Simulated assay, not measured.
Amino acid sequence: MSTAAAVDQIDLPATGTWTIDPGHAEVGFIGRHFGLTKVRGRFTGVEGTVTVREPLDLSEVHVVIDMASVSSGSQTRDDHLRSEDFFDVANHPQAVFRSTGVTTTGAVAQMTGELTIKGVTRPLTLEAEYLGHATDPWGAERAVFSAAGTINREDWGLTWNMALEAGGLLVSKEIRLEIEVELVRPEPSEES
């Protein structure tokens, strides 16, 4: 597999545009119910590209999330998340993340960008980690990344909640994002 460069003795993926493999991509989220129990969910409809450039700080990420693909292990909760109270999937079927900057230190990077959910665009910083690369059994080059960050969902207009009799809120405002993606490098065009 060709590499872009070695940073801190880590071979990074080759320059060029890599495509997210939707079958090996997940945007997960963790919130709290009653301020206590962790509730986990994920979006399985994830598409996009990562363009690796030299220097790496010029690299770009563009991700589109199918909001109807939300899955939390409860059909009732998933239907509520798709409703106007939360994602309003009928009017806002996609969320979009576009990077605006990348600062790398070896295999770890701080990635800044803009996340649009429900028509609201706000800044987001993720800590991303390059986990490595491999050639799959069919000869395609693959690179694997994970990323994580925390948001206040109310910043994106996701404000539905219920006050609890004993104090506090039913659903936490703070949401942890955990992202896992496998990228595939398209074959060079035979016409080139």
Rank of each mutant, 00 (worst) to 15 (best):
112 T>C: 00
143 A>R: 10
139 G>I: 11
132 G>I: 07
125 T>L: 07
119 G>S: 04
139 G>F: 11
143 A>P: 11
111 M>H: 02
102 V>M: 14
108 V>G: 00
114 E>A: 12
96 V>C: 08
145 F>H: 06
122 R>T: 07
104 T>D: 01
140 A>H: 15
109 A>T: 01
129 E>Y: 03
98 R>M: 07
116 T>V: 05
137 P>G: 12
110 Q>S: 13
112 T>E: 08
100 T>I: 00
126 L>K: 03
95 A>E: 07
142 R>L: 11
121 T>F: 11
102 V>L: 15
117 I>N: 10
112 T>W: 02
133 H>D: 13
112 T>A: 13
129 E>V: 14
130 Y>S: 00
92 H>L: 06
105 T>V: 02
126 L>Q: 04
145 F>Y: 15
97 F>D: 04
92 H>G: 02
121 T>G: 09
108 V>H: 02
129 E>T: 15
112 T>Q: 07
139 G>M: 13
99 S>V: 00
112 T>L: 03
115 L>C: 05
91 N>W: 01
94 Q>E: 12
118 K>V: 07
99 S>C: 03
102 V>K: 09
116 T>A: 06
95 A>R: 08
125 T>A: 13
99 S>T: 03
113 G>L: 00
137 P>E: 12
113 G>Y: 03
139 G>V: 13
128 A>S: 04
93 P>T: 00
146 S>R: 15
117 I>F: 06
138 W>F: 15
137 P>N: 11
132 G>W: 06
133 H>S: 15
129 E>S: 14
102 V>A: 15
101 G>S: 03
136 D>V: 09
139 G>T: 12
109 A>P: 01
121 T>D: 11
131 L>T: 12
106 G>K: 02
137 P>D: 10
141 E>Y: 08
141 E>L: 09
125 T>Q: 11
133 H>N: 12
104 T>R: 14
138 W>I: 10
110 Q>N: 10
136 D>G: 13
141 E>T: 08
99 S>E: 04
135 T>E: 15
105 T>P: 02
97 F>W: 04
138 W>M: 13
102 V>N: 07
125 T>D: 12
113 G>W: 00
119 G>T: 06
131 L>N: 15
103 T>P: 01
134 A>I: 10
144 V>D: 01
96 V>L: 09
117 I>M: 14
124 L>G: 01
129 E>C: 08
96 V>T: 15
121 T>Y: 08
127 E>V: 14
116 T>K: 08
105 T>L: 03
127 E>H: 09
145 F>G: 03
101 G>V: 00
127 E>K: 14
125 T>E: 14
115 L>A: 01
107 A>H: 03
137 P>H: 11
146 S>I: 13
92 H>V: 00
126 L>D: 06
96 V>Y: 07
119 G>H: 02
101 G>A: 02
96 V>W: 08
119 G>W: 05
138 W>V: 12
109 A>D: 04
108 V>I: 05
147 A>K: 13
133 H>G: 15
140 A>I: 00
109 A>M: 05
115 L>V: 02
113 G>K: 05
139 G>D: 11
123 P>T: 09
119 G>A: 05
95 A>N: 11
106 G>W: 01
94 Q>W: 05
136 D>A: 13
102 V>I: 14
122 R>Y: 01
124 L>Q: 01
106 G>E: 00
145 F>T: 00
106 G>L: 04
112 T>K: 07
135 T>G: 09
147 A>R: 09
102 V>Y: 06
